[in-house]
């Protein structure tokens, strides 16, 4: 699969010159959601904590960055830092809720957290604009002194650069001891403890780091979409991300982005196919994926072995 990365990066860079502005904006959105999916893969695949709640720090980071964009700073980097730190802070605050849970209990608690955040976002009108959403965030300039990102192409390339940098950092970290330790926790937690590893602390750090990535993606959403509503962070988004991660191979952070791209493309294609029947077809897609994917993975493994 590795040989695919270079052409994929090339295609991603060339895309805004080949596609119309609307498609470019859609691609930017896919990049942003792909980054959230990478944080889901970090928890679900690498650390073994299946999550439906990464939309929560995603939302927290997005609303924080939007508030910053509306009221003070229009510099991209400060917005990214704002999003990441609020996402991390949100995760740190919710760590006691999740860190002792595993498996299906983790899935359930994170789902409840994600849903509560959406509910809170639709009620807290003064900050989030409620269900009407929040609009009018100006386009930022990436750094002090650089020009404003005033086209879809510029915003897309900005998102691509940020996502690329974050992904490289995450992949490099996971190749090192941090990745070993997290995979060790996933494989056999008791054995990690018996070797002296503080499993709870590792998982808490992974959870907070995933929160920071999702929060950073949230601030990127403000830049690329320039509009926020609670629907951007709903349960269906969380489920789509999880499906993308499973398609991408669960343990692979890069695969998560590819999987999310596939899932989002399939969703848009399905809702264009039969207008108004999108959710029905999407539901069918989930059901089909649940049956096909494990078999596919099994077959792939046999082909490889």
């Amino acid at each position: 699969m590795r040989w695919l990365i270079a052409p994929a990066v090339l295609a991603a860079v060339a895309a805004p010159w080949l596609a119309d502005p609307y498609t470019t904006a859609t691609l930017a959105r896919i990049l942003v959601l792909g980054l959230v999916a990478a944080s889901v893969a970090l928890l679900t695949g690498v650390a073994g904590l299946p999550t439906l709640g990464q939309t929560a720090p995603f939302a927290a980071g997005a609303y924080a960055a939007a508030t910053l964009a509306l009221h003070s700073s229009s510099v991209g980097v400060t917005q990214l830092l704002m999003g990441a730190s609020v996402g991390a802070a949100f995760a740190a605050l919710t760590t006691p809720l999740v860190v002792y849970a595993r498996g299906v209990v983790f899935l359930m608690i994170t789902l409840a957290i994600g849903e509560l955040v959406v509910t809170a976002a639709s009620r807290w009108r003064s900050v989030t604009g409620g269900t009407d959403g929040l609009a009018g965030m100006p386009s930022p300039r990436p750094l002090w002194g650089l020009p404003i990102l005033d086209t879809d192409r510029a915003r897309y390339l900005y998102a691509l650069a940020v996502v690329g940098v974050v992904l490289c950092v995450v992949v490099l970290l996971l190749r090192g001891p941090a990745g070993m330790y997290l995979r060790g926790c996933r494989d056999d937690e008791a054995r990690m403890r018996a070797s002296g590893h503080p499993v709870g602390a590792y998982l808490a750090i992974a959870y907070i780091a995933a929160g920071a990535i999702a929060g950073l993606a949230g601030s990127l959403l403000v830049t690329t979409q320039q509009y926020l509503s609670p629907a951007d962070f709903g349960f269906d988004v969380a489920a789509l991300l999880l499906l993308g991660v499973v398609i991408g191979g669960a343990g692979s952070v890069v695969g998560a982005i590819a999987g999310t791209a596939v899932v989002l493309a399939a969703r848009d294609w399905l809702s264009g196919l039969l207008p108004g029947r999108g959710p029905l077809l999407l539901g069918a897609l989930f059901i089909a994926a649940a049956y096909v994917l494990p078999r596919l993975r099994f077959m792939l493994r046999r082909v490889v072995a």
Partner: peptide, 13 residues
């Protein structure tokens, strides 16, 4: 994970 995807698909459809 697969159980969650499946039951979510059923809920959506």
């Amino acid at each position: 994970l697969t159980q969650a995807l499946l039951t979510f698909g059923v809920a959506l459809a």
